[in-house]
């Protein structure tokens, strides 16, 4: 039987690892990180581009390097980690029920919990693009995983909808791997991506960014054969008279990220409009003893800021456990 941890961190990405390390620094001995995937580091593992750690380490690191530094620290600090351990339920009285490949069914009663579950990508289904539903419509993050982890192309002639950072990063990445990125369409009159990404990922590769434009129809029977695009008016309504078709085999979506917080909502924790957990100035949610950090609170542009918030949440959780 596992001894009861004082602190459980749900999610072993950048936010969760930072929180666990800080709590340990503040004197909390019994800490357990529960991670659904079979590895620590979360989405950083597939972010093989650089741009990580400029603030935290003063260095320009790739995602896996940034994650590796924290994974090493977690190991050195002797923080408990259970991988392949999805959490099934969290309750208002801080009971955590989880399944672990290695330890079976777990019911734990920590003194505090840090929610560090990150975010998910908005899907084609969520934004209800008209047309067919063939293979070849996928989110930028899924394509990134196929390319960087599995070593496979998800498409050769690609249209990207949405100019979020993952979409921009993937435009460059796909181009470098020999795919043709035809264009990036953005519904809004300006891109939500970082300026440096627009320059380095689109402009440097002559990939057009069409603002105030959206995909109005997906074509294709088994595989995407093309998409129809149209400009939108000031109410973001497509002007269908001006639509045109582009032949492509893939539609990549970078249309936003949503905090992954349903586990805590089910326990009664309130969320903001963005689906992020509502937190007070101590990063505590509506449930006493349940703290939150990283993209589960709000989607961050930079991992360094996620780490910073993780450190804070870990500190506040430690103080809570010590009764401060």
């Amino acid at each position: 039987m596992r001894t009861e941890p004082d602190l459980i961190v749900i999610g072993g990405g950048s936010a969760g690892m930072a929180a666990a390390l800080e709590a340990k620094k503040q004197g909390i001995e019994k800490i357990l990180i529960l991670e659904t995937d079979p590895y620590l580091g979360g989405v950083l593992r597939q972010c093989i581009h650089t741009g990580f750690g400029l603030h935290t380490f003063g260095e320009d690191l790739a995602g896996p390097e940034y994650a590796a530094r924290f994974i090493r620290q977690v190991e050195e600090a002797g923080i408990g980690v259970l991988l392949s351990t999805p959490v099934l339920e969290v309750t208002e009285d801080l009971t955590v029920r989880a399944m672990s490949r290695d330890e079976g069914y777990l019911e734990l009663h920590p003194k505090a919990i840090v929610a560090a579950t990150g975010c998910r990508e908005r899907s084609a289904g969520t934004i209800a693009i008209p047309g067919t539903r063939p293979a070849g419509v996928l989110t930028a993050g899924t394509a990134q995983r196929y390319l960087n982890i599995e070593g496979y192309h998800a498409g050769k002639r690609v249209v990207i909808l949405g100019s979020g950072d993952i979409g921009l990063i993937m435009a460059r990445r796909l181009t470098l791997e020999g795919a043709k990125v035809l264009l990036v369409a953005e519904l809004m009159p300006k891109s939500g991506g970082l300026k440096r990404n627009i320059v380095q990922c689109l402009e440097d590769f002559d990939i057009p960014l069409l603002l105030s434009t959206t995909v109005v129809e997906i074509h294709g029977r088994e595989r995407v054969e093309g998409v129809s695009l149209a400009p939108v008016d000031e109410n973001l309504t497509p002007i269908l008279e001006k639509k045109w078709r582009v032949d492509c085999d893939t539609l990549l979506l970078s249309v936003g990220l949503v905090p992954e917080t349903e586990l805590f909502q089910a326990a009664g924790a309130p969320v903001e409009k963005n689906n992020g957990l509502r937190v007070d100035e101590n990063l505590m949610t509506g449930i006493p003893g349940l703290f939150a950090c990283g993209n589960a609170v709000k989607v961050h542009d930079l991992v360094d800021n996620v780490t910073l918030q993780g450190v804070k949440a870990g500190g506040f959780a430690a103080a809570f456990i010590k009764g401060e």
């Binding site: 070849g136 996928l138 070593g151 496979y152 998800a154 050769k156 020999g178």
Partner: peptide, 29 residues
């Protein structure tokens, strides 16, 4: 990955639905 392993085929032959609906378009060089 699970389908490729269990069916004994490369990942880029795994179908989304019917023939012609391969999800992946070949290995990265």
């Amino acid at each position: 990955s699970i389908l490729a392993r269990e069916l004994g085929i490369p990942k880029d032959q795994v179908l989304y639905d019917g023939p012609g609906s391969e999800i992946l378009k070949g290995k990265v060089k």
